[in-house]
C-alpha cells in the first residue's frame, strides 16, 4: 500500500513537472527572442556608431549576450575568420542552423533570423540599420504575442499536468 502511494506520488510529481516544463517552453522561447533582440541592438550600435566590420561586431556581441544565443554570433565570427571563400549568407545560415539547437526558438523564429542575414554586409549602411530595426520590430511583435499566449498555455499545461497525473492514478487504483 505504501509502495503504491509512493508510486502515485511519483507519477503525479512527474506529470506536474512535465506540465510546468511544457507551460514554460513559450516563456523560454520569448527569453531567447529577447536575447536575440539585445544582440541586434548591440549590432546596430556597432554598425551605426562604431562603424565596426562584421567580424569585430560579431565577436563583441558574442561576449555581451548570454548563451545559447551568443553561440550563433560566436559561430558566425569563427566562420568569417576561418573561411577564405564563401558568401556571408552561407556563413550566417551555418551559424544559425548549427547553433540554435539548444535554444527554444521555433522554425518560424529561425526563419526570421535567417532572413535577417540576407542583407548583412551590404554597402549601404542605412540598409543595414533599417534591416536591424525591421527585425527588432518583428521580434518585439512576436514576443508580445508570446507573452499573452504563454500566460494562457502556462495555466493550461500546469492544470493538464496535475490532472493527467490524477487520471493515471485513478485508473490504476
Amino acid at each position: 500500500m505504501v509502495l503504491k502511494f509512493v508510486g502515485f506520488l511519483l507519477v503525479l510529481a512527474s506529470t506536474t513537472l512535465i506540465g510546468i516544463y511544457l507551460g514554460s517552453k513559450e516563456s523560454f522561447r520569448a527569453m531567447d527572442l529577447k536575447e536575440f533582440k539585445k544582440a541586434l541592438i548591440i549590432l546596430k550600435s556597432e554598425i551605426e556608431y562604431l562603424n565596426s566590420p562584421l567580424l569585430e561586431a560579431m565577436q563583441n556581441i558574442s561576449v555581451k549576450v548570454e548563451p545559447p544565443v551568443s553561440q550563433v554570433f560566436m559561430g558566425m565570427s569563427k566562420k568569417m575568420f576561418c573561411s577564405e571563400s564563401g558568401d556571408i549568407y552561407t556563413f550566417w545560415q551555418d551559424a544559425v542552423l548549427g547553433n540554435t539547437k539548444k535554444t527554444y526558438l521555433k522554425k518560424e523564429d529561425i526563419g526570421l533570423i535567417l532572413d535577417f542575414g540576407k542583407c548583412l554586409g551590404h554597402l549601404d549602411k542605412n540598409l543595414q540599420v533599417n534591416n536591424i530595426r525591421f527585425t527588432i520590430e518583428q521580434i518585439e511583435e512576436r514576443v508580445a504575442v508570446l507573452n499573452i499566449e504563454s500566460a494562457k498555455s502556462k495555466k493550461m499545461y500546469n492544470s493538464m499536468g496535475i490532472l493527467s497525473g490524477l487520471l493515471i492514478c485513478i485508473i490504476f487504483i
Binding site: 566590420p53 567580424l55 556571408i88 548583412l120 554586409g121 554597402l123 549602411k125
Partner: peptide
C-alpha cells in the same frame, strides 16, 4: 566583386566613406 567583399571583411558598409 567577391575580392572587394573579402578585402572589406564582408563589411562593405564599414568602408562606405573610404569607397
Amino acid at each position: 566583386n567577391k575580392t572587394l567583399e573579402l578585402m572589406c571583411g564582408y563589411s562593405l558598409y564599414a568602408f562606405g566613406e573610404e569607397i
